[in-house]
Write a protein that binds this DNA or RNA. Structure first.
Lengths: 178, 178
DNA sequence: CCACCTCAGTCTGGTGAATGAACTCACTCG
DNA sequence: CGAGTGAGTTCATTCACCAGACTGAGGTGG
């Protein structure tokens, strides 16, 4: 990737993947994209990331073919960032890593439950719905805060919008911020 | 984690996981550990990583419970670094990410094939052997260079040792270097 | 028994990336 | 007209990464 993260000597597909999504913030941006975050400002307030870094990461992810930039209004042209096909395939590693973090590194974090929209059962770490016996595509995954979970301390509109049950990839609405 | 990589505001298990394995080199060290690399010097020559960084990463991974340090000789006491239970569970995210990289980011890298030791069939990106219908534990996964693959340009003893078919987690032998 | 080697580090100084805050710019709304 | 919004850019400071030199405990070999 651009910024000095090139693992030049590592002749390995994991190293190549990490050049694309291995930098600080990159995978969190991708996760947010799965959650339905699409706009610069929404990533900004939800991730608490420096603007310059967000600009750089979004550009890099677009260049790498993980995200694409789509105009969504004219006035001043504004773009939203959507996952490409390749980006959508990151669901498996992202989900597997998050499940690992939940088991081994996140005693004190809020947990999120991911279920299959068709049947309501939880998705396994490898992204399949065991009762249905199918791999569940992100669009058919419903996320909700784990029952009895303490509320996240964050109060930005994106966090609030994500706190109610919703399917992945549905756009976050930040209209009602008035 | 130690070094400023703390995503403090992100109340999410993916962020927690990335605090443990999200730093530059961390996942490559874990991958090498799956490949059977155990000793400081072997990580060093295989990864081409600055010594100070390797020291810091190994310490952080041990503190995080991903690796543990075991003495393997007395004279001057030397330690080797082995995956813990928690570390072994990183196999799924590591493998999924490597498969993603292979498909989307690694046209020009050497590929490695991972097969099930019992039947010889390839392991799916989610770590299961489809014909056998079982999740294959790392110890039962055999790695080998993809057939017809161009040789890696690296010539260090660790790379050479890894170039012949072998089960994951079997220690790399660097005795015969003379 | 002195020179050299191995392993696993630590130390050092330089470079480049990440950070937060302030600034820009085009446009809209009241 | 003035305030607000969305998406940036610029800047100074901090901090992590880097290559390479050095350390130190214990072999090895002539």
């Amino acid at each position: 990737m651009a910024l000095g993260t090139d693992y030049a000597q590592q002749d390995c597909s994991l190293a190549r993947a990490l050049e694309v999504v291995g930098e600080r913030w990159s995978l969190l941006i991708v996760r947010d994209a799965f959650y339905g975050v699409r706009r610069f400002n929404d990533f900004l307030v939800h991730l608490d990331i420096p603007r310059a870094v967000l600009t750089a990461r979004l550009r890099a992810l677009v260049e790498a073919g993980v995200l694409r930039k789509e105009p969504y209004q004219d006035g001043p042209v504004r773009y939203e960032y959507l996952l490409t096909e390749a980006g959508l395939e990151l669901w498996l590693p992202v989900h597997a890593l998050a499940r690992w973090g939940e088991r081994h590194a996140a005693e004190h974090a809020s947990h999120t439950v991911f279920t299959h929209d068709a049947c309501g059962n939880r998705i396994s770490p490898v992204g399949i719905c065991v009762p249905c016996g199918v791999a569940v595509a992100p669009a058919h995954v419903v996320m909700r805060p784990a029952p009895g979970d303490r509320r996240s301390p964050r109060t930005d509109p994106v966090t609030l919008a994500l706190a109610r049950p919703r399917a992945l990839l549905t756009p976050v609405l930040t209209e009602g911020q008035h």
